[in-house]
């Protein structure tokens, strides 16, 4: 038995060593590229560390007791079985910690619900199994669906680096502008999720939901449908390209002028 335990400990240590190789970034939530996503990351880390500290204290006491208070050491069991002050203490302390946690969380939440002064309005519609984007301020509208070839999915070809997170038509948006998304669905529930923007909301047929974002850095951000929506739920990614305002305006002008690069104008 003892050798077996040693073996297990050996394997576990190695497992964590391998995990460390993969790097902290792969293990943790993304910090994202918006002010709010940074705040969300901060909340996540705060609550994580609170849990770690509580865990160290509780498990520490427990392991101490497992090591020291064992029958094989010849200890006599104590007989105490209540202590009002202790019990009061460990009801109140967690309560206070929770309040401390809830306050910043509520503040962030209020910011997330502020959609005022949005300059760009985009309607997103979920379909089984693709997304439709409509730029409501102009008449540009297009569908966006998975562009990974079937041969890659069925292991006949080598998978490219963006396997299952590439689309035919990316959603193009400007940076440093408040964008408001209106979300609905054509058939079943979907959820539009881009981790880097800390945005996730359900698309519900017959109802609209809204969310808004200001992206700070240009780049390509990838997300996925997060609500089970049927057979190809795992195959409806989201790719959003954030560009400088000038570039965005040029793109938009071109897109509404003529049908460019596969953008179908469904409004006309």
């Amino acid at each position: 038995m003892r050798y077996f335990n040693k073996f297990l400990i050996f394997v576990m240590v190695n497992f964590f060593a391998i995990s460390a190789h993969a790097g902290w970034l792969d293990l943790n939530m993304t910090q994202g590229v918006t002010d709010i996503s940074q705040e969300v990351f901060g909340l996540h880390m705060l609550i994580l560390w609170i849990c770690v500290v509580i865990g160290v204290i509780v498990f520490g006491a427990m392991f101490w007791s497992i090591l020291m208070h064992r029958k094989s050491k010849g200890v006599k069991p104590a007989t105490f079985h209540e202590s009002t002050s202790l019990e009061f203490l460990w009801t109140i302390v967690p309560f206070v910690i929770l309040i401390g946690m809830a306050v910043p969380a509520t503040k962030t939440l209020i910011k997330m619900y502020d959609h005022s002064d949005s300059e760009i309005h985009i309607k997103i519609t979920g379909y089984q199994w693709l997304w439709q984007y409509e730029y409501l301020n102009s008449d540009v509208a297009f569908y966006s669906k998975l562009s990974t070839p079937y041969n890659e999915i069925y292991n006949k070809e080598k998978k490219n680096i963006n396997y299952l997170q590439e689309v035919d038509n990316e959603l193009i948006v400007p940076i440093n502008k408040k964008i408001r998304f209106l979300l609905t669905s054509n058939d079943v529930l979907h959820a539009w999720w881009v981790p880097d923007l800390a945005l996730k909301k359900d698309a519900i047929p017959g109802f609209i939901n809204e969310m808004s974002v200001v992206i700070n850095e240009p780049g390509i951000y990838r997300g996925r449908c997060a609500e089970l929506c049927g057979r190809h739920h795992g195959f409806m990614p989201i790719v959003i390209k954030a560009v400088e305002e000038k570039e965005y305006n040029e793109w938009l002008a071109n897109a509404s002028d003529k049908k460019t690069s596969g953008i179908a104008k469904i409004n006309k």
Partner: peptide, 18 residues
């Protein structure tokens, strides 16, 4: 939390076998 603390305290200063 109260439950977990109670269990740990039950173990505390016992004479445990495993």
């Amino acid at each position: 939390g109260v439950k977990v603390f109670n269990w740990v305290t039950t173990m505390w200063k016992g004479a445990m076998t495993f």
